[in-house]
Design a protein around this nucleic acid. Structure first.
Lengths: 340, 340
DNA sequence: CCGTGTCATGGCAACGTTTTCAACGAGTCT
DNA sequence: AGACTCGTTGAAAACGTTGCCATGACACGG
């Protein structure tokens, strides 16, 4: 009903004390008599008053907000990470600003204008794969930066070991007895990612260790990319018996093509993804879990820790990955692998 | 490098003008000589200065921020809506605050404390299904509210006609010649949704029109719910020939059970979802598209319109739904429907 | 040449908090 | 009893920006 939201002055008046006292109470500062404290709290409640972050931030220099920057908001992954960050920030009573800076144009504009210069206490970037230059720009804003999904020495980072994850996945297929193992990557230029590179490297390394040559295809990202690449693989004169995809979206596209082509999974071809996408369970897709919620949570807590001065700004947190075995991988026909 | 971010005073000094003039230039206000304007802009650029929303908001009373409230951040749907809202807000140079208030406890706390009292210019709620009481609480904060996925008379709402969508989907199955059409709902008490109710009603109405009795099951939400319900249906002594799920997540769970049970889709049972989930394409699932990105975009633009005084606070926007035909629906065996 | 209107600009008081400092009373110690 | 401390409170000055009003320059018409 109140046309104008109450201000601290109103609370002070109602409780019969001065502004300073109200401020102290609401901030939880010491040095206030218990009965006065109670009286003020009641007054604030009755007016359903909350402090204006704007005003308090003006003098404290802290905004009570953390900016989270993501390239896109639509893919499943980012929503889950955001969810973790959000929960961590709520614990510390911080608000979450979200910036989506996906298309190159928007991203350029964003890194130039940096709208958060004075508008957030910290920045969390998710899968942004910042360039050296962008990193320095961020330094200029003078707030701590936490990198998610990118590991940069000297900077707070939360990430998974993509190399190890992909290598592990490859080994899983090798252990099943596969030797013709293809890798489908995204190969998307517009959003070049170190994670992408690392996964390919992990696959390559595992293959090399097994004395096999890598076999990697891929021109586009997403379902479409998986479909295209799988089409290409199926028309090879000696198709693979197992396929590892850079991430589940791609694997799903591949899966669709296999289903349509009547190729049995895992009967004729084993298929493996990466990410443990929500829908991977539905497709019974064996994949590598990377716990994006926990990643978000860890990133959020690290941010809070840095703001509280309890964590160093060069902390690195490596999140574990884990192979989730489902029904899309099996020993090849006539296997001489583990499954003999 | 600058340890302290520049303030307007610095810019004024560097450009050799007064604070007022800098403010006018940066705000795009008229009444500044072109050469001075240019000089100020250069000075601001060189100091890579941006105005503090905190400070300007303090005096203008506008924060430049819009709060978006979602029950959950993880499900695909919300990320897509958020993406649309984000794009719309960027057009108007507004920042986006995101609050995740899913678990009942957090939600209770949130509606009580309303942390956005003075911290945002408007509130967008997504699929929150606010109670009468919560609505009034929101009114108290004194900022405009835009409801997404909930249609309340007298309040700005952006929504789809769930009833019509579900009825259309049901008719699609009827037209194919099905008569034993079951409906799988979520029946989740913890987050009772009008959308949920409407879809069930739409299904029921279409069935009634066709002179058929409704047949609805469902105890849980998500994949798991779909699996459970489909299991129940499959063990019926006369199973359905077609199944409509309240949303794609449920349909996917059902699909999984069908695949595992060796029931052919759509050969033996036609399956239809609702939402056009990202992964529905992968499963070749016939579904009802509800364009969540466009919904978010519309909601964001409506918010901006209201803030600019160009839109009324009781505007209703109904987003269209559209049936996406894929491979999971077909005429029943021995059909005497359209497909004769 | 003088009033009058217009335009560009600067000064100053807000906005709603926190913070620093001073004041006050009640104990406590010498 | 006086000086001192301690705990509690209030007054006032910030913080960085925007609004309003005053000022000065300049052009125009009488």
């Amino acid at each position: 009903m109140s046309s104008q939201p109450a201000s601290m002055r109103d609370v002070a008046h109602r409780a019969g004390v001065s502004l300073s006292t109200v401020s102290r109470v609401l901030r939880g500062a010491p040095g206030v008599a218990p009965d006065v404290r109670l009286r003020v709290q009641r007054a604030a409640d009755e007016l359903s008053y909350v402090v204006s972050r704007n005003a308090s931030g003006l003098v404290t220099g802290r905004t009570g907000r953390v900016a989270v920057v993501v390239p896109f908001l639509q893919p499943w992954f980012f929503g889950v990470v955001l969810s973790g960050v959000s929960d961590a920030l709520r614990e510390a009573d911080l608000d979450m600003l979200v910036y989506q800076v996906g298309e190159t144009r928007a991203r350029e504009g964003w890194t130039r204008a940096l709208p958060l210069r004075r508008n957030s206490d910290a920045v969390v970037t998710v899968s942004m794969d910042l360039s050296e230059d962008e990193c320095h720009r961020l330094d200029d804003v003078g707030v701590p930066v936490v990198l998610v999904g990118q590991c940069v020495p000297g900077r707070a980072s939360v990430y998974i070991d993509d190399r190890a994850g992909a290598a592990g996945a490859t080994r899983h297929l090798l252990n099943l007895g596969h030797t013709r193992i293809a890798y489908i990557g995204a190969r998307r230029e517009e959003w070049s990612s170190t994670s992408s590179r690392h996964r390919l490297e992990g696959y390559g390394a595992a293959m090399a260790t097994a004395g096999l040559a890598p076999w990697s295809v891929g021109k586009a990202t997403g379902h479409a990319g998986g479909e295209l690449a799988m089409g290409e693989l199926l028309s090879d004169q000696d198709p693979p018996t197992a396929v590892l995809a850079e991430f589940d979206d791609i694997a799903m596209g591949a899966h669709r093509i296999l289903r349509r082509s009547g190729v049995r999974v895992p009967g004729s071809i084993s298929l493996m993804g990466f990410d443990n996408h929500d829908a991977a369970a539905v497709l019974d897709l064996t994949t590598v879990d990377q716990a994006p919620y926990d990643t978000g949570l860890a990133a959020g807590r690290l941010t809070v820790g840095i703001l509280d001065g309890k964590a160093r700004t060069d902390t690195h947190v490596e999140m574990p990955t884990q192979i989730i075995l489902r029904q899309s991988t099996a020993a090849p026909r006539g296997a001489r692998g583990l499954s003999t």
